[in-house]
Design a protein around this nucleic acid. Structure first.
Length: 352
DNA sequence: AAGTGTGGCAACCGCCTTATG
DNA sequence: CCATAAGGCGGTTGCCACACT
């Protein structure tokens, strides 16, 4: 019944890995491949449990890991994907080849979360904090507008989440289809497999939407998707023609576009300040190709600026170590660069 | 120079899902 | 179909290095 008993944990070493242990694990995997993590420690001569070996390998020893400082581009990707996916680090890591979910998680917790918090952005919901929005100089009319904007913000986020759920449902439905008709295109990373099918009509009132799938490397998912994995593979590889690559890029762009276009809509509505007029639906033009980035940037910066102004005379809290205008410029550039990424065509995006 | 505080990161823990007999 | 182990994932902890007092 069931599998053979798990490794007994008596006498197994814990804590930091020594260079000797690393060498043993590396040597074994290079020679034999990963195989079963449970049996690996004994075969490799390690006094560790399989789980510990797997973690050490995936988070540190894997040859295709990029270490060191995160680039601005990577930061942007993390922030955007976290807005969409939340703390699904493995899913986020799918879009950052050579970075592990653990590394991304640590970087988020130690750097990005704090930075967003400092800027008055709730790192969990990715929307401006209530007090930040409500701390504007003049009174109630703006408060009402701000609350409306917050509702729109949340609405945009929920819409994106709903779309993800829809796609997930479609995915499960399409797995059978894929078994008969392998996907037109597939990407895979050492830790996950991503497949994209041809665009399909996904439901009532929805435009054709390429279907994007995120599959773990659990045995079966790759096979189901019609992808053959190679152990020790060091680079992502694209299976398919360049035209299919274009389809994939377009699909990924559409996948994220729900959330970002909603942000853009809000951006436009915010332009010119927090006025009731700006909230009218016809002021929201999602299809407008020219996105007014300044509005969103200003939203992100309003809080710090407001506080900076209202606290004039007081010492700044050391957010940037510089003057208020320096801080404003830094943040503005930061968020503008994020918006540039969002607004650029998918083919321009380094993400895709 | 010594003590203390803080940040960063590797590793562990526990839960959940998947695979297997 | 059920029980159970393996694998995967996210949250948390603990250690180490560096900064500050």
């Amino acid at each position: 019944m069931g599998r053979s008993p798990c490794c007994d944990k008596v006498g197994l070493k814990k804590g930091p890995w020594t260079p000797e242990e690393d060498q043993k694990l590396l040597a074994y995997i290079e020679e034999h491949g990963r195989g079963s993590w449970r049996s690996l420690p004994a075969k490799a001569g390690l006094q560790r449990c399989g789980k510990s070996c797997r973690l050490r390998w995936t988070n540190y020893l894997r040859p295709d890991i990029k270490r060191g400082k995160f680039s601005l581009q990577e930061e942007q990707t993390i922030i955007q994907l976290h807005a969409l996916l939340g703390n699904r680090w493995s899913a986020i890591a799918t879009h950052l080849p050579k970075r592990t979910d653990n590394e991304i998680k640590n970087y988020w917790n130690t750097h990005l979360k704090k930075r967003l918090a400092k800027m008055g952005i709730d790192p969990i919901t990715h929307k401006p904090k209530n007090d930040a929005l409500l701390s504007t100089a003049d009174g109630q009319s703006k408060n009402a507008a701000n609350l409306s904007h917050m509702a729109q913000w949340e609405s945009a986020r929920l819409e994106a989440e709903a779309r993800l759920v829809r796609e997930s449902k479609i995915r499960s439905h399409s797995l059978q289809h894929q078994q008969l008709n392998p996907p037109a295109f597939a990407l895979e990373s050492p830790t996950s497999t991503l497949t994209v099918s041809e665009p399909m009509v996904t439901g009532l009132g929805m435009s054709p939407l390429p279907m994007v799938e995120f599959c773990g490397t659990t045995s079966g998912s790759s096979e189901t998707a019609g992808v053959v994995k190679e152990e020790g593979e060091q680079e992502w590889k694209a299976l398919g023609s360049s035209s299919n690559l274009a389809d994939y890029k377009e699909g990924m762009g559409n996948s994220l576009s729900s959330f970002t276009s909603s942000l853009h809509a809000m951006t436009i509505s915010m332009e010119g300040g927090w006025t009731p007029e700006s909230l009218r639906p016809n002021n929201i033009n999602v299809n407008d190709g020219t996105i007014m980035e300044e509005g969103f940037t200003n939203l992100l910066l309003n809080d710090s600026m407001d506080r900076s102004l209202s606290d004039s005379g007081k010492e700044s809290d050391g957010n940037s170590g510089g003057s208020g205008s320096d801080y404003y410029e830094d943040n503005k550039n930061y968020w503008d660069s994020i918006l540039n990424l969002v607004n650029s065509s998918p083919s321009d995006s380094p993400m895709f």
